[in-house]
Design a protein around this nucleic acid. Structure first.
Lengths: 145, 145
DNA sequence: TGGGAAATGTTTATAGGTGAATATTCGCAT
DNA sequence: ATGCGAATATTCACCTATAAACATTTCCCA
C-alpha cells in the first residue's frame, strides 16, 4: 500500500524522482494519467486493467461514459523508471496542472498521485479542516467489531 | 494495553526512543500518523489494515472519499524500530506539531501517542482541571447510542 | 548531410537516513 | 548507601537517496 507525502522537483528536462519508498512497491513500468482533482495518477499495469474491466461495464451509449474514457485513455502514458528512479512527465500532462518545478508526491492507498506543490498545499489545507471529522469516523471503523 | 507517560528527546537526526515498556507490546513495524488534538499516533499494522478494509468499500468516484483517503494516507508512514528501539519521525509529521526536541510519549489504551512536550503539558493541565466534569458527562455519551 | 533540439544517460556533491559505539542516567537489589 | 544492569542520551561514521550539473545519443529539419 502506498502511503506518505514527499516533496520533489522536476529537473530541467521535466523528470522527477519517484521517492524510493514508493518505488519499492512499484514495478519498473506503470501507467501515468490524469487523476481526479487536478493531479496525476500512477497505476500499476494490473490495476489499470482492473479499472477498464469496471469501465467496460458502463454503457458507452451514455455521453458521460464516453467522455470519461476519452480523458482517461488519451492522457495515459506508459512510463518506465530509468536507472536513477526517475520518470519523465510529458508536457501535455504537466502543463494543464501547472506543474513546473515543485511537486508533491503522495501515496494514496492503491495508487500514487503527483500534485503541483501549491495545488496540493491548498487542497490539503482545505481537507485538514475536516480532519477531526475524518479521525472520528476512523475510530468508529476500529470500534465496530 | 498501553499505559504511562514518558519524556524523551529527539536526537540530532530526528529520532526518538520508544520507551521500553511500550516497546514490549509493539511489533517492530507499525504505522505513525496524525492523531487528534495535535499529536502523532501509532497504530499497529493490523489496526491500520482494518481501517482500509472499510475504506476500500467506499466509492472513489465521490469527492469526499478521495479527500478522506488522501488525508489519511499522505500523513501516514510505516516505521520500524531500529535495534536500539528508536524510530525516525519524518519532518513533514514533526514540523506542523512543533516537535523539535522534547516530546512526551503516552500510552493511550489501544495505541501510543507522541506529543510535543509543551503542547502536552498545556493539554494535560487543562484536562486535569476538568477531570471530574468530563467524567460526569461520560455516561451521557454511552446513553446516546 | 550537418546542426540543433529534445530525449536519455552519467557523474558528482550534498543531505538525510541508518547503524554502531560510547557515555550517562536511572532504577533496583543487595 | 553502594554496585550492578538495563534503559536512555549522545556522538560519530557510513551509506543511500536526492539534486543538480554535465555528457551523450537520437532524431528531426534545414
Amino acid at each position: 500500500m502506498f502511503i506518505g507525502e514527499y516533496s520533489h522537483n522536476l529537473d530541467a528536462k521535466g523528470r522527477i524522482i519517484i521517492p524510493s519508498k514508493l518505488r519499492n512497491e512499484l514495478h519498473s513500468s506503470f501507467i501515468l494519467t490524469r487523476g481526479l482533482d487536478n493531479c496525476l495518477t500512477i497505476y500499476s499495469l494490473e490495476q489499470w486493467e482492473k479499472i477498464f474491466i469496471e469501465i467496460n461495464k458502463l454503457p458507452t451509449t451514455k455521453k458521460a461514459t464516453r467522455q470519461y474514457i476519452r480523458v482517461l485513455t488519451s492522457s495515459a502514458c506508459e512510463c518506465t523508471l530509468d536507472n536513477q528512479g526517475r520518470i519523465l512527465i510529458p508536457t501535455n500532462l504537466a502543463e494543464p496542472l501547472g506543474i513546473k518545478k515543485e511537486v508533491t508526491i503522495i501515496g494514496a492507498n492503491d495508487h500514487i498521485e503527483i500534485w503541483d506543490k501549491k495545488t496540493w498545499d491548498e487542497y490539503i489545507d482545505e481537507a485538514d479542516k475536516s480532519f477531526e471529522d475524518v479521525a472520528e469516523n476512523l475510530s468508529d471503523l476500529l470500534d465496530n467489531d
